[in-house]
Amino acid sequence: MGITIGIMALQGDVEENLNATREALRSLNIDGNAIQVKYPEHIAGVDGLIIPGGESTVIGTLAMLNGSLKVVRERISSGMPVMGTCAGMILLAKRVYDRVVGETRQQLLDILDVTVERNAFGRQIDSFEADLKIKVIGEQPFKGVFIRAPVIRETGNGVDVLARLDDSNDSSKSKNKSKIVAVQQGNIIGTSFHPELSGDTRLHEYFIRLVKEYKSR
């Protein structure tokens, strides 16, 4: 039986994630499909979930109002793979603050053990593209598309760093303000950037492999 990957379709770049996921399924030659999910009962039926880019405050509010937040949290706890890109990663996090405003009162899934700083690089004028090294998907650089992007400042136990911006051997000065931009905690993947906009499906492929593994268990 094929796998079904849901894209949370409350707000944000849903279609781009749908396309990237379908493209990745094709390139892996895996039997499966990607669908939009808006309601808790739909979320209950997928094998993996992607929370797209957008505004984390909006997606969080809408997911709280319709009861999705609770269902997503339960499914992730029971092992369902989830990938959050940008806003999606913020929603997954346990601790979030904004660079300028500070504490936010936003709704969170409170499951990924990291501290996220929102709008960490500044406003839209400072949004940027940069080549990233992400070992788990191969040596070829990955185009990171950072749009008013968050960054991970601290990680808890059990969180693996997949990519960071300050990727130098000289870790002395960056220890305190690390710029982690992709992490994995078991079945949870979070990225500061938008793999769905890069035209490179390797991260989506990586996620799909997790889903396939979960499904066959």
């Binding site: 707000q11 279609e15 505004e55 949004s127 940027f128 593209e129 940069a130 749009i147 906009l197």
Partner: peptide, 26 residues
């Protein structure tokens, strides 16, 4: 520009249109 030592590009068409894509359904 450079962020520390890393070369970065700002204001590209992808970043400008990408920002608009993040507003979708909103």
């Amino acid at each position: 520009e450079r962020m520390d030592t890393l070369p970065v590009s700002k204001g590209t068409t992808l970043l400008k249109r990408g920002f608009a894509h993040m507003q979708k359904h909103g």
